[in-house]
Design a binder for these strands. Structure first.
Lengths: 173, 173
DNA sequence: GTCGAACCATTTGACGTCTAATCATTAGAT
DNA sequence: ATCTAATGATTAGACGTCAAATGGTTCGAC
């Protein structure tokens, strides 16, 4: 029962910026950032058929994705080659260095997610998610129906993947 | 009770982006954007002593504020002049055109806030605000203690201000 | 076969944001 | 008085993002 409320959109914006900046700081130690982490993650767990799918999964436009892929290519973390059967498609793949960078970033992302969730119950999370979805729906957003956040967990050294965990940790922009 | 949860930081980020874009679209019709609206709003209701205060209230750095002030100056919505007693300070003031732009943007912002809050109770809003603050606290954010969102309401033609309402409508970045 | 439409990716040009460096002014110390 | 430090604002350079235009490639109709 607070008499004066800040506009909820502003609260959302400010919180998202603060959390996003903290996430970028955390990933910076591992040589990454939010979009870079999401690119590597999506290359690893799903197998995007083309860059359009990858861009959508990451949440950026194709032009922006190309930008990041150029940088990742220059750093030697990915390779791009034309698909033999459909030469319009650029097949993006992680290099060995890319795999290693992915593992480092996963550590940082998981640690951040634990920190962010400190003191929150499952009910709190469901509650928050529900409210956020209602806001998105109120401004006419199409629900992103693809939740590929499964099948990836802690084991960094061996690629033995266990079924359940919370891997893709993200932050706001 | 959903078995697979997207990381809460990612949910926050995506919702904030969607809502923010919708807000910018809404304000674009009135010739504005989120930072421009916040600048005019803060010039109108508080009386920032210097640009540092104004930048902090808007949520951008001083350099970014200068950027926007240049644009607003070029559009004839504000004026800047040196304070006579402390010539380091640029006194920023709304022109007549600036006042009119402020009123147009306020209409758009209030309409957006109504749309965003559709179907939400006061309890929902308090609930959401509380959860957002907990997330911000978990990543070590300093609570922004200045809530100047009061004393500004619907009456666009006459400056007779009523005590209670929700004026400053914001969105995410 | 050829040609137009659709598709995939990149390039171009713009904007908003940030950090770091710079310029001007004021305050404080001596 | 002068000098140094602090303060207020701007500029310079960089990055991430987007929309629109461009270059190749494939598909389908004819």
């Amino acid at each position: 029962m607070q008499s004066f409320r800040s506009p909820i959109g502003l609260e959302l914006s400010q919180t998202a910026r603060v959390v996003s900046r903290a996430f970028d700081d955390a990933l910076d130690q591992a040589g990454g950032s939010l979009p870079v982490w999401l690119i590597l993650l999506n290359l690893k767990i799903r197998r995007p058929g083309n860059q359009r799918e990858l861009a959508e999964a990451v949440g950026v436009r194709e032009a922006t994705l190309t930008h990041h892929l150029n940088a990742l290519d220059a750093r030697g973390l990915i390779t791009r080659r034309r698909d033999a059967v459909n030469r319009r498609i650029h097949v993006v793949e992680l290099t060995q260095a890319g795999e290693e960078a992915f593992l480092r970033m996963r550590e940082a992302a998981l640690a951040f997610d634990r920190r962010l969730n400190d003191g929150l119950t499952d009910a709190d999370r469901d509650n928050l998610t529900g409210l956020l979805h209602r806001l998105a729906a109120n401004v006419g957003a199409a629900e992103n129906d693809s939740p590929p956040w499964a099948g990836l967990a802690e084991p960094p050294p061996k690629p033995g993947r266990r079924p359940t965990a919370a891997p893709g940790t993200g932050a706001a922009e």
